[in-house]
Design a protein around this nucleic acid. Structure first.
Length: 301
DNA sequence: ATGTAATCCTGTGAGC
DNA sequence: TGCTCACAGGATTACA
């Protein structure tokens, strides 16, 4: 599943390949993939046509691309979404939901690639939304230019303006388990089930540990773990930047090779050899090492 | 304020 | 072989 590192890989691909040329056509094949766009998929296509995408920004798992019209193309990949930059003659993908074609770049037709939104489970979606302060974006961390549907999303751990102390205070104020808090995108964004489990394993914390009982050093260790695991995943996912293809399938190499806990039920913990255990958690799964991450006496989840 | 459960979806694989 | 069912899970919504 695309979490922050995968989405950042996509952002870099979009930043490199699809900015600066007017959109010529927009085709929507599944209206469900146009979400939050209250005026509907037809309007989505209409308003986007003729616009030029100026930049590619990200917060947590959300992407947004400001246009020369003062609004932005907003995207979330959900569980199975991909944004692919493809040559026009590439065969349509099975779950192709939308296609955006750009005006040719005189004489350089070989670079005239199109943007495709592919999404098997259609939990992801695209929309066009107004930007509060148009045309003012300095970098992709700029808070003032966040579209309305992303306004409630907290800064993510790779954002230079992410405030660890404020996070620690907000975290301890919550009366919940630490993993639930990690997955709360209004507290910290970009963390999904996979990286939550990996970070907790690295920080040697159990998912049901009550947030208010966490010490300052433990929170710092946890944050470092979140950042490290994401940066490592990003390094490995980054190898596909040159491929004229934006890799988003949630299998950034890292996925298969480097996971210590997630998805490894009944396999040896890389740190101590104890068998990793799988618990039901929030309609999904949590993976822990019973020895490195003992369940707290007062558990909360 | 916080927790719980249902909802949205489809491909995969296990079990019968 | 073919059916059924559990499962994967992010974000939002409704309800407790």
């Amino acid at each position: 599943m695309p979490e922050l590192p995968e989405v950042e890989v996509v952002r870099r691909g979009l930043d490199r390949w699809i900015l600066g040329r007017p959109i010529e056509t927009v085709e929507v094949y599944n209206p469900r993939s146009i979400r939050r766009h209250t005026a509907g998929p037809l309007h989505f296509a209409e308003v986007l046509t003729g616009r030029t995408l100026l930049a590619a920004h990200r917060r947590g798992k959300y992407l947004w691309l400001p246009t020369d019209g003062g609004d932005a193309l907003v995207g979330h990949l959900g569980m199975s979404g991909q944004l692919l930059v493809q040559p026009p003659d590439a065969p349509d993908e099975t779950h192709l939901r939308a296609r955006i074609r750009f005006a040719p770049d005189d004489g350089r037709d070989h670079e005239n690639r199109e943007l495709r939104f592919v999404d098997q489970r259609t939990f992801g979606g695209l929309s066009v939304e107004p930007l509060p302060v148009p045309g003012n974006a300095v970098d992709h961390w700029d808070r003032e230019n966040v579209p309305p549907s992303i306004a409630h999303i907290a800064r993510d751990p790779l954002d230079p303006n992410f405030d660890p102390d404020a996070f620690a205070v907000a975290l301890r104020r919550k009366r919940t388990g630490v993993k639930r808090a990690l997955l709360d995108q209004t507290l910290i964004s970009g963390v999904g089930n996979i990286y939550a489990d990996e970070a907790l394993w690295r920080a040697q914390l159990h998912y049901a540990r009550p947030t208010e009982s966490l010490t300052g050093p433990q929170i710092r260790r946890l944050l470092d773990a979140v950042r490290d695991v994401m940066l490592e995943a990003l390094e490995q996912g980054g190898t596909s930047f040159d491929a004229l293809y934006v890799n988003v399938n949630g299998e950034s190499g890292y996925f298969e090779r480097s996971l210590a806990a997630y998805g490894r039920a009944d396999q040896a913990c890389p740190r101590c050899g104890t068998l990793i255990r799988r618990d039901a958690f929030m309609n999904r799964s949590s993976y822990t090492c019973p020895k490195c991450q003992p369940r707290p006496r007062r558990a909360r989840w």
